[in-house]
Design a binder for these strands. Structure first.
Lengths: 212, 212
DNA sequence: TTGCCCATGTAATTTGTTACATGATTTA
DNA sequence: TAAATCATGTAACAAATTACATGGGCAA
C-alpha cells in the first residue's frame, strides 16, 4: 500500500571514529547515574534509579545493574573497591566512574543518534482490543491507568520541589518537570479516551435504536 | 545443591482459575492481531503490527513474531496451514486464531491486572545528563525528538482518516486518536522543555554576570 | 527466637534483536 | 541480466527478568 520507511537501514552498528565499545542504552543509564560523581553500590544505584530514571526510562532490575557494573568496569569506565564496615553490615562493593568513563558517557550523550522512545502501553493494547471487552471493563482499565498516571505525576512534582534549588541538579530537575507534565498528559488522555468511549457507546445505542 | 522448590512462595506466576499458560504481553499482542479474524502469515502480521501496534506498543521483530506464532500454535490458540501458490511465489504458512485462542485473549484483555506502561525515553535520558552537554546539543536532541513526534502524530492522524467509517475498526480507531493526541503532547512537551532550557541558560548567564 | 525486611549478589530462564540463508519478483 | 526488494524463515547472540542463596539487624 505505501512506501512507509521510517528508518534508514544504513550503518547499523556505527563504528564511529575511536571504535567505541557501543554499549546499549541501559549501560549509559547506569554510567550516567555514576557521572554525578558519587561512589555507589549496586543497591544504591538501584535506589537512585528508582527515584530518577524511573520517570522517563524504566528502572533496570538489581541483577541487571550488577551485570552492567561489571561490564562498565571491564570497559574501564568504572572502578570498584570493597568496603568493609568496621562492624555490623556485610562487605560491599562500591563503584566510581573513571575519567575514561566520564569521557565516554559525555561523548555518548553528545553524539549518539537520537532514536525514538520505546513505549509499551499495556492499557492501550487492551483498549485496542475493545471488540473483546465490555464498556465497563474498558472504563475500569482506563480508570486504573489514570490513577497510575496521577500518582506518578504527583511523585515527579514532589521530587521537583525537593531538587529545585540545588544547582547541581538543574538538568535532572528539568527532566522531572518534563515528567510531571508527561504524566499530567497521560492522565488527561485517559479522560479524553473515556469520553470517546462513552460517545461511541452512545452512538451505537442510537444506531441500534434508529436503524433496526 | 538442594531440593528444588516446587512452587514459589509468593505465587509469582498467577495460577488463576483455569491454570492458564500465562503468556507475556507480546504474545497477547500477536494473538490480538489475529483476533480480528484474518488468516495471516508472519510477514503479514509484521506489517499489520507496524501499522497499528507501533503507535502505542512497540512492534516486535519478524523473528519474534515467528516464535510467538509457534508458541501460540503449541498452546492451541492458533492453527496454521501451508499455502502453496499455484504459481510464482514461495510456499508460506498462514495462521488463524482458534476458538480457544479467542477465549484466551478475551479473558486476558478483560481480566489481566492493569500494569503501568513501559517507557524508555532515550532523548530524556540524555537531557537528564545535561551537565555533560552543550546547550546547542540539547536543543538538537530535542529538535530531532520533536520532529519524530510530529511525524508519528501525522501518521496516526492519517490512519484515523483511513480507518474512520469502518465500524469493525471502531476501537482501533479510538486508540489511533489517542496516539494522535499522545504524539501531539510529546511534540508540545519538547517545545516546553526547549523553553525551560533557554530560560535556565539565560538565568545562568545572568548569574555569572551579576555575581562575580 | 522467630519471622521479616534490608542488603548483596549469582544462576537459570525468558525475551527480544541482529545476522544469516534462500528463492522469487520487480526494476534498472 | 544484474541488482534491489519482497517474502519467508532459522540460528546465534544479547538483554533483561525471575528465582535462588546468604547473612545481618530489628521488631513481634
Amino acid at each position: 500500500m505505501s512506501a512507509r520507511r521510517l528508518r534508514s537501514v544504513t550503518e547499523k552498528k556505527q563504528g564511529g571514529e575511536g571504535e567505541r565499545p557501543a554499549l546499549p542504552a541501559t549501560s549509559w543509564a547506569v554510567l550516567g547515574l555514576l557521572s554525578f560523581g558519587e561512589e555507589l553500590s549496586g543497591y544504591d544505584l538501584k535506589k537512585w534509579s528508582d527515584r530518577s530514571l524511573r520517570f522517563f526510562y524504566w528502572s533496570p532490575s538489581f541483577s541487571q545493574i550488577y551485570s552492567e557494573l561489571k561490564r562498565l568496569e571491564k570497559a574501564g569506565f568504572a572502578t570498584s573497591r570493597m568496603v568493609t564496615q568496621d562492624t555490623g553490615t556485610r562487605d560491599k562493593r562500591v563503584y566510581r566512574i573513571t575519567d575514561a568513563g566520564m569521557d565516554a558517557v559525555r561523548t555518548w550523550a553528545r553524539e549518539a543518534p537520537v532514536d525514538p522512545p520505546v513505549l509499551k502501553h499495556g492499557p492501550m493494547l487492551r483498549l485496542w482490543l475493545g471488540h473483546l471487552l465490555e464498556p465497563e471493563q474498558m472504563r475500569e482499565v482506563l480508570a486504573q491507568h489514570r490513577e497510575f498516571a496521577e500518582k506518578m505525576r504527583q511523585r515527579a512534582l514532589a521530587d521537583v520541589e525537593d531538587a529545585k534549588g540545588e544547582p547541581a541538579w538543574a538538568y535532572p530537575t528539568l527532566t522531572l518537570k518534563w515528567a510531571e507534565r508527561y504524566y499530567a498528559s497521560e492522565r488527561d488522555l485517559a479522560d479524553a479516551m473515556l469520553s470517546d468511549i462513552e460517545e461511541l457507546e452512545a452512538s451505537e445505542r442510537r444506531g441500534r435504536g434508529t436503524r433496526p
